[in-house]
Amino acid sequence: MNWTILKTEEDYTEASERLMDIFHAVPNTAEHDELELLSLLIEDYDKKRYQLPRVDVRDIIKAKMQERGLKNKDLEPIIGSKSYVSSILSGERDITLRMAVKLRDFFNLPSDLFLQAQS
């Protein structure tokens, strides 16, 4: 089949079903090329139609703190003084690049979370 940009849910369903049929295609074959094309078309359709909600990195940090049983004072070595930690977590101050790196490493978070917060 000659695939084009997916415009309808029917197109999307058809492409998804075909992708599953050829999922284990052997590299360097026409089927594998079709698989790669379908992957791109499906990804494009998903991005245009299904927006994931933005997550506030502060909420993620608070959830990680709760998960680990941490208090605000436990972040003082990473962020700074008690009042600074409080103002960061409340949203009164922005997370700096230096803090983002330290928080990313401390909580093992993806860097994208911090980039998303800035856009």
Rank of each mutant, 00 (worst) to 15 (best):
H32K: 14
A15D: 03
K47Y: 13
L97T: 14
L115W: 06
V85S: 00
K7T: 14
G80F: 11
E34H: 04
E9C: 03
L37A: 13
Y50C: 06
I42Q: 02
E9R: 05
S87V: 00
E14T: 03
D59P: 00
T13Q: 12
I88R: 11
L40K: 13
D94W: 03
L52K: 13
I22W: 10
I79V: 14
M99S: 05
V55T: 04
R98V: 15
N2C: 00
P27L: 09
A25M: 05
H32Q: 13
I60V: 15
R18W: 08
K47I: 14
A63H: 02
R93D: 07
D33V: 11
D11F: 10
Q118Y: 08
V85T: 02
L52D: 11
E31K: 11
W3P: 10
E14R: 03
V26R: 14
A63I: 01
D33R: 10
T4L: 02
L37R: 14
Q51A: 14
G91V: 06
W3C: 06
V26Y: 12
N28K: 08
L113C: 01
E17T: 10
L19G: 08
D56S: 06
S86I: 07
Y12M: 04
Y84F: 11
Q116N: 08
M20P: 03
P27V: 12
A63Y: 03
I79G: 03
S83R: 02
F23S: 11
D112Y: 08
I95C: 08
R58K: 02
A117Q: 13
E34Q: 06
A15S: 03
E34L: 02
M65L: 05
S90L: 09
L97P: 05
K102L: 10
L113D: 01
L115V: 11
R104S: 14
